[in-house]
C-alpha cells in the first residue's frame, strides 16, 4: 500500500501550511483553503491536495471529491492567457457556440486544455453578467464583447508578442 510517495518542494509545502493555518486548519474551511491555494499555485495538482489533506487532517479522497465537484477548481495548469468563453443563455442565443468552435480551431485544443507552448488555455463559463455584450469572451481579466467567429483571429493576435 501507499506505493506512491508524493514529492513537494519545501517552499511550496510551507506556503500550503501557512494557508491552512490562516484558516485554523479547520476541515470546514476546505473550500476557502482550496481557493487560496489555487490562487497561489494557479491549479491544484495531486501533491498539493495531499498536503492540504494532511494539514486539515482529512482524507485526501474527500479533498479530491471536493476539488472535482466544483468547476472553479482545476488540476491542470492554465495557460498564460486563459481564454474563457461565456456560454450563458444570452451568449448562446447570440452564437457563442460558433465563437467557441473558432477558438478551438485556431488554437487546436479542446475546452479544458492548454496549448503546447503554455500560452493559451480554453474554458467555458456560465454568464459573467455582461449579457448586453453577448457573446462575451474573457482573456485573463480583459473582456471582449460582441465577439464573432471572424473576430477570434484578431483577439489572439493581440497576444502574439506577449
Amino acid at each position: 500500500m501507499s506505493r506512491i510517495k508524493v514529492k513537494v518542494k519545501e517552499k511550496d509545502l510551507n506556503t500550503i501550511k501557512e494557508i491552512c493555518k490562516s484558516f485554523n486548519n479547520e476541515q470546514g474551511e476546505l473550500i476557502n483553503v482550496l481557493h487560496k491555494t489555487q490562487e497561489h499555485f494557479g491549479y491544484l495538482p495531486a501533491e498539493i491536495q495531499e498536503v492540504v489533506a494532511q494539514e486539515l487532517e482529512m482524507s485526501v479522497a474527500k479533498v479530491y471529491g471536493v476539488v472535482t465537484f466544483y468547476s472553479f477548481f482545476t488540476m491542470k495548469p492554465k495557460g498564460k492567457f486563459p481564454i474563457s468563453i461565456c456560454t450563458g443563455t444570452a451568449c448562446y442565443v447570440r452564437g457563442a457556440e460558433n465563437v467557441l468552435a473558432e477558438f478551438k480551431r485556431q488554437l487546436n485544443i479542446e475546452v479544458g486544455e492548454t496549448t503546447e507552448d503554455g500560452k493559451f488555455s480554453l474554458s467555458c463559463l456560465r454568464c459573467v453578467g455582461a449579457c448586453g455584450l453577448a457573446p462575451v469572451v474573457l482573456v485573463g481579466e480583459k473582456t471582449y464583447g460582441r465577439v464573432s467567429p471572424e473576430g477570434v483571429k484578431d483577439i489572439l493576435a493581440e497576444y502574439n508578442d506577449k
Partner: peptide
C-alpha cells in the same frame, strides 16, 4: 464571506 466554486 464564503466563496462558491462553480456549482449551480
Amino acid at each position: 464571506l464564503r466563496y462558491g466554486a462553480g456549482a449551480f
